[in-house]
Computed example of a mutant assay.
Amino acid sequence: MPHTSTPRPSVGRIVHYLSHGTPARPDGSQAFPPQCRAAIVTEVDPDDPDRVGLQVFNPTGNFMRPLAAGGSSRDEGQEQGGTWHWPERV
Results as ranks from 00 to 15, higher is better:
residue 61 G to W: 00
residue 28 G to N: 02
residue 28 G to S: 03
residue 71 G to Q: 04
residue 24 A to F: 02
residue 3 H to S: 07
residue 54 L to C: 10
residue 66 P to L: 03
residue 83 T to H: 06
residue 23 P to N: 02
residue 10 S to C: 10
residue 8 R to D: 13
residue 56 V to F: 10
residue 89 R to T: 04
residue 5 S to A: 12
residue 24 A to S: 15
residue 52 V to H: 00
residue 4 T to R: 08
residue 73 S to I: 13
residue 11 V to S: 01
residue 25 R to I: 01
residue 27 D to R: 01
residue 4 T to V: 12
residue 41 V to G: 08
residue 31 A to P: 14
residue 14 I to E: 08
residue 58 N to Q: 13
residue 33 P to V: 05
residue 60 T to K: 08
residue 72 S to D: 09
residue 17 Y to I: 14
residue 58 N to I: 10
residue 90 V to W: 01
residue 45 D to K: 07
residue 33 P to E: 09
residue 86 W to G: 06
residue 12 G to C: 04
residue 28 G to M: 08
residue 33 P to L: 08
residue 15 V to H: 06
residue 71 G to D: 10
residue 77 G to R: 04
residue 20 H to W: 08
residue 72 S to T: 11
residue 53 G to A: 13
residue 5 S to I: 13
residue 56 V to D: 01
residue 54 L to M: 08
residue 32 F to I: 07
residue 42 T to A: 06
residue 71 G to R: 01
residue 22 T to E: 03
residue 54 L to K: 09
residue 36 C to G: 09
residue 88 E to S: 14
residue 45 D to N: 13
residue 14 I to D: 09
residue 31 A to N: 12
residue 41 V to W: 02
residue 33 P to R: 04
residue 1 M to P: 10
residue 52 V to N: 01
residue 19 S to E: 02
residue 3 H to Q: 11
residue 61 G to T: 09
residue 4 T to K: 05
residue 73 S to Q: 15
residue 22 T to H: 04
residue 29 S to L: 06
residue 86 W to F: 08
residue 23 P to E: 02
residue 24 A to I: 05
residue 14 I to G: 08
residue 16 H to Y: 05
residue 67 L to N: 01
residue 73 S to T: 13
residue 8 R to F: 09
residue 11 V to W: 10
residue 18 L to R: 12
residue 59 P to Y: 02
residue 87 P to E: 00
residue 84 W to P: 14
residue 2 P to F: 10
residue 76 E to D: 15
residue 30 Q to Y: 02
residue 44 V to R: 00
residue 84 W to D: 10
residue 81 G to P: 05
residue 42 T to Q: 04
residue 6 T to P: 00
residue 30 Q to C: 07
residue 71 G to Y: 06
residue 1 M to S: 13
residue 75 D to M: 13
residue 75 D to A: 14
residue 46 P to L: 07
residue 77 G to K: 03
residue 15 V to K: 03
residue 62 N to D: 13
residue 9 P to E: 02
residue 62 N to A: 06
residue 59 P to I: 05
residue 68 A to C: 11
residue 58 N to Y: 04
residue 75 D to G: 10
residue 12 G to D: 01
residue 12 G to W: 03
residue 56 V to C: 05
residue 55 Q to E: 07
residue 35 Q to N: 09
residue 61 G to S: 11
residue 82 G to C: 08
residue 40 I to H: 00
residue 73 S to M: 15
residue 74 R to F: 10
residue 67 L to R: 04
residue 83 T to A: 03
residue 32 F to C: 06
residue 8 R to E: 15
residue 21 G to Y: 04
residue 85 H to D: 14
residue 22 T to Q: 04
residue 77 G to P: 10
residue 79 E to M: 13
residue 45 D to I: 02
residue 1 M to K: 07
residue 20 H to R: 15
residue 70 G to P: 12
residue 43 E to M: 06
residue 22 T to A: 03
residue 60 T to F: 11
residue 74 R to T: 12
residue 88 E to Q: 13
residue 4 T to M: 07
residue 67 L to D: 01
residue 74 R to Q: 12
residue 16 H to T: 15
residue 78 Q to G: 15
residue 38 A to Y: 06
